[in-house]
Write a protein that binds this DNA or RNA. Sequence first.
DNA 1: TTATTTCCGCTACCGCAGTAGCGATAGAGG
DNA 2: CCTCTATCGCTACTGCGGTAGCGGAAATAA
Lengths: 188, 188
Amino acid sequence: MVGRGRPRDTEIEAKVLDAAMTEMRARGYDGLSVDRVAERAGVAKTTIYRRWPSKAELVMAMITELTSAVPFDPTGDPRRDLGEFVAGIAAALDAIPTTLVADLVAAAAREPRVGVGVRALWAHRHAAVSEAITQAQADGLMPAHADPRIIVDQLVGALYYRLLVTGDPIDPAYVRALVLSTLGPEQS
Amino acid sequence: MVGRGRPRDTEIEAKVLDAAMTEMRARGYDGLSVDRVAERAGVAKTTIYRRWPSKAELVMAMITELTSAVPFDPTGDPRRDLGEFVAGIAAALDAIPTTLVADLVAAAAREPRVGVGVRALWAHRHAAVSEAITQAQADGLMPAHADPRIIVDQLVGALYYRLLVTGDPIDPAYVRALVLSTLGPEQS
DNA sequence: TTATTTCCGCTACCGCAGTAGCGATAGAGG
DNA sequence: CCTCTATCGCTACTGCGGTAGCGGAAATAA
């Protein structure tokens, strides 16, 4: 019952994603045209839409492939782990064009399927960092008055806000200051 | 040297913004078509584009009219003022459709002119709240280890992040918890 | 009055995202 | 073997944002 009709050509996925990546790097999100991707991949446009129901989801698939290789290994030192967590997100945001981040956020807010995908991208890291915060609070290493999930909102939200709205740079100094502002000063 | 050629019809601005508002409420940002706005306003599409160079800027003009009537009067009590600041932004974000917020953020990141407009919308409040934080720190009412601008990033960024990415609700309880997390517990 | 300049409405056009429907094809089940 | 079904490439289409260029209208400057 599984493989009735003609099977899908397994090479098409990779060819399309490669072509999309090339177009993306050359022209950005807006400049990426599905027609051109199809032409470059040597594939019909309708074949692309059979796999990814919209341009946003096609690009989502690209990004997912890209960022799935970003590890996160908590060491147990919460201050260090949070710093690496924030720095890792900052690096990921820096690795792709700002306009793409913006369009992905917009697509996530507009289309539920994309939203689920974007959230799933970060779910693992968020859970790990929430746990690290809880542990640190239990150990008295940081103020206990705050909900860990809110702290995650503050950390990640500040990065997005700075990148997308204020447009100010996200450099290592900012990441340090942000973590310091959230955790409070060292209190051994 | 000022008014050479034929003067602009001053009624057109209001007619177009009204029509755009109606379409916006009925169909959202994506469903808003400049062709239909032109037809509803009884105006040529090119006349709209002569005033606003893109659909994003047309909608920006609408929003600017809407949110320009949101006051902010610091009382001097920093905890209360910050709470009202955050609640005011939350209310403004709640008053317009989420997808519109998302598209505006995307447009702000993509087109510099829109970015300037969005930032100008909030510049006054941001400055006021930064000042309130600085004053509160000087008075010893809240921890002095953080840069006020970073605190603003954390507060506003958390709201945007929750609204656009995680999709969780922004209710008064969340606003309270967010302010508490940022300021720390009461220390009179 | 006449020349100049800008606006307005209009038609036509471009490239784009996304859809419908067509023959042809490649496999699975009978 | 033949039938059934899903895929592929293709053409054609819709609605959209945005642009170019036209004739005509409304103002100012000479």
